Amino acid sequence: MTSEERERGSKWLDRGGLRPTRQRLALAALLVGDGRNRHVTAESLFDASRNAGEQVSLATVYNTLRAFCDAGLIREIVVDGTKSYFDTCTDDHPHFFWEDDQRLTDAPSDELEISRLPQAPKGAEVSSVDVVIRLRKV
């Protein structure tokens, strides 16, 4: 990783109020170091960290992703009950889930129109709406 990637990762962690441990810095640099948004799974980030020569366990990756979510730096997108993706773009936007290759990508939000939501039950409020559009090749 370059010093620029590490610097971007460090600033990103600072925005979330997180202490820049060695593991957090390494994972942050992989997630945002190039300045682009991405969707990752814990497993894909673990593989990327190993390929970059970082010594980070899969459990540490899971815990770090949870800390990044709690700090508001990333969003968790649950595709089904067993598969979560983590998105570095935290703005509200829909996603395409490509079933054939298990990939999550951004969908154009200007083409999505939600005209009405059901009323939240008494004592609750809608905190967010996740839209995942499943696709398969024909």
Rank of each mutant, 00 (worst) to 15 (best):
F86S: 03
K83I: 11
Y85I: 05
Q55P: 01
E54R: 04
A107F: 11
E111V: 05
A67Y: 10
G53L: 04
A59H: 14
C69I: 05
P94Q: 10
A48H: 02
T82H: 12
L112G: 02
A52M: 04
K83L: 15
S84N: 07
R66K: 11
Y85G: 00
L73T: 01
T64C: 05
R103F: 12
E54K: 05
R103C: 07
L104P: 02
A107L: 12
R50N: 01
R66A: 07
E54I: 03
D100M: 01
Q55K: 09
N63F: 06
A52Q: 04
D106S: 14
G53W: 05
L73K: 03
L112T: 09
D101F: 14
A71E: 03
D70G: 11
N63C: 07
C89S: 15
T64V: 03
G53S: 03
L65R: 05
G81H: 15
T64L: 02
E76S: 13
G72K: 14
P94Y: 11
G81Y: 14
Q102I: 11
L73P: 00
S57Y: 02
A52H: 01
V79A: 08
F68P: 01
D110Q: 12
Y62M: 08
F68C: 06
D91Y: 10
R75S: 14
G53P: 02
D91T: 14
L65Q: 02
E99W: 10
L112I: 11
Y62L: 08
T82P: 00
V56Y: 08
P94I: 09
A107C: 09
A48S: 00
H93Y: 06
D101A: 00
A67D: 15
D101L: 09
L73G: 04
H95R: 06
R50M: 10
E76G: 11
V61H: 06
L112E: 05
A71G: 02
D106M: 11
V79Y: 09
R50A: 08
Q102S: 14
S57G: 09
E99S: 09
V79C: 09
Y62V: 07
N51C: 04
W98R: 12
A71M: 05
I77S: 03
I77F: 04
A59T: 14
C89M: 15
D100V: 02
D87A: 13
A52S: 07
W98E: 11
V61L: 07
S57T: 14
C89A: 15
A107Y: 09
I77Y: 04
D100C: 00
D110Y: 13
S109C: 00
I77C: 01
R103M: 09
T90A: 06
T82F: 11
E54C: 04
E99Q: 12
A52K: 04
N63W: 08
